Simulated assay, not measured.
Amino acid sequence: MSAPVPIYLLRRGPLSPDTGGPNRVVYDLMKRCTENGDPCRVVTVNGSSTELKPPKRAPQIEANSLKQRLARGLNRFSYGLYLQLLRDRKRLLEHIAPQTTRGSVIHAHEQIAAGLVFPQLKLPKILTVHTKGSILKDVLYKVHPHIAGTWLEQHYKKIERAALRSANAVTFPSEGARKVFAEDYPDLLQRVKILRVVYNGIDVSGFAVKKHTEQEVLSILVVCALVEEKRFDRVIEIAAQLKAAGVRFIIRHAGDGPLREEYLQQIRERELGDHFELFGSLPNERIRSLLDESDLYLLPSERVIFDIATLEAMASGLPAIVSDVGGNREMLVDGESGYLIPPDEIPSFVDAITSLAGNAGLRSDIGKNARQRVEQRFSIQQMYDEYQSLYEEVYQRTRK
């Protein structure tokens, strides 16, 4: 028999190297399928595709059109979100059905999408959890806080639990991610027959290795959304202490979020404007340019599952100075391929940066080790091969 054919399942697109999270992972998997000549498909509520492009998008609606205003109004109430779930289930099942063939394996990258359709499908089913614990805590409460304590909250929990009950295998992008999720659903994870950690990978060949030289001004790169858990306020405090220590530096940030104006105000109040460049959201190509222009990477986040931006910095030969939490502990070796620092120990971040500021040789050594670690453990080919092996294992088990 030929190898199982994966059907990658997401609720919505687009697929692009400029997206993050599960959409980026599915894009990379589709890209590797195409390069290897292997069959695969992707399904979202808007359609399906066998090519390296997103399924066709639904027609765009003007942001202030009557239809869009009504949709936004409905979604402020539980009933509107419930109707959306019903529509999504119908569309996903309609798009999956024509794609299934003998040997198909469905691989969902979002719990709600999986919970909506897994119970109705007789295919082998794999769920990859990309969230920090339950999707309710990590996503839904932030986007729709009004559902907390309502009947719809219980409905979402029912859908997420259905995904876990129906899955033949569940994977996580790091051991840290598995532990966090197990805190929310310890009973269900114990029943899953196959639990696996499959690290997200990147195409290392797309990143040039930084040639470190002595610099008058140290260039520090930060890539993250401006949300509370990323703790950009710590970056500002680190900058203040670096300035007080007489270090010449510039911090360049890529990313956007609801706290942008608040952080800009903090930078102005602390008279740090000359030390920051906040670019907002940038395409992947521009971020790669920033990696090449930078001397080190910094991210003192509160919680981390498995940060692709940190992985890309390591692949570029940059020393990464990151929080000693979650997936970071699996990604790099402290003092060898980067630095792991307790997230609230600001002076330790400052000391690590200061030690690297005037030592291009040390930056180069750590950067080379970081690149080598990514090549050996976190390549996109390794991720792809592990998933292909899992598809075969799940398919053979479900045939018995």
Results as ranks from 00 to 15, higher is better:
149 G>I: 09
228 E>L: 06
149 G>P: 03
136 L>V: 12
249 F>N: 01
144 H>M: 03
202 I>G: 02
238 I>Q: 02
253 H>T: 10
131 T>I: 09
128 T>W: 03
230 K>N: 14
239 A>S: 12
130 H>Y: 04
173 P>V: 15
145 P>W: 05
131 T>H: 11
230 K>Q: 11
192 V>A: 05
221 L>T: 01
199 Y>G: 07
226 L>Q: 13
230 K>E: 11
233 D>E: 15
238 I>F: 02
209 V>M: 02
194 I>D: 04
143 V>F: 06
181 F>H: 11
253 H>Y: 00
146 H>K: 13
120 Q>A: 14
163 A>V: 11
134 S>R: 10
145 P>D: 04
244 A>P: 01
193 K>N: 12
186 P>N: 06
249 F>R: 06
186 P>W: 02
212 H>G: 08
202 I>E: 06
173 P>C: 12
145 P>Y: 05
236 I>K: 05
247 V>M: 05
165 R>V: 10
127 L>M: 11
254 A>K: 06
177 A>Y: 04
160 E>T: 12
204 V>D: 07
160 E>K: 05
166 S>P: 07
210 K>W: 02
241 Q>M: 13
208 A>Y: 03
214 E>N: 09
229 E>W: 11
202 I>T: 11
174 S>Q: 09
244 A>H: 11
201 G>A: 12
193 K>W: 02
173 P>W: 00
242 L>K: 12
222 V>P: 01
240 A>L: 09
148 A>F: 06
175 E>L: 13
253 H>P: 00
200 N>M: 08
218 L>I: 08
146 H>P: 04
175 E>A: 13
162 A>M: 06
145 P>S: 06
123 L>D: 02
184 D>C: 09
140 L>H: 10
227 V>T: 14
250 I>E: 13
174 S>I: 05
136 L>D: 03
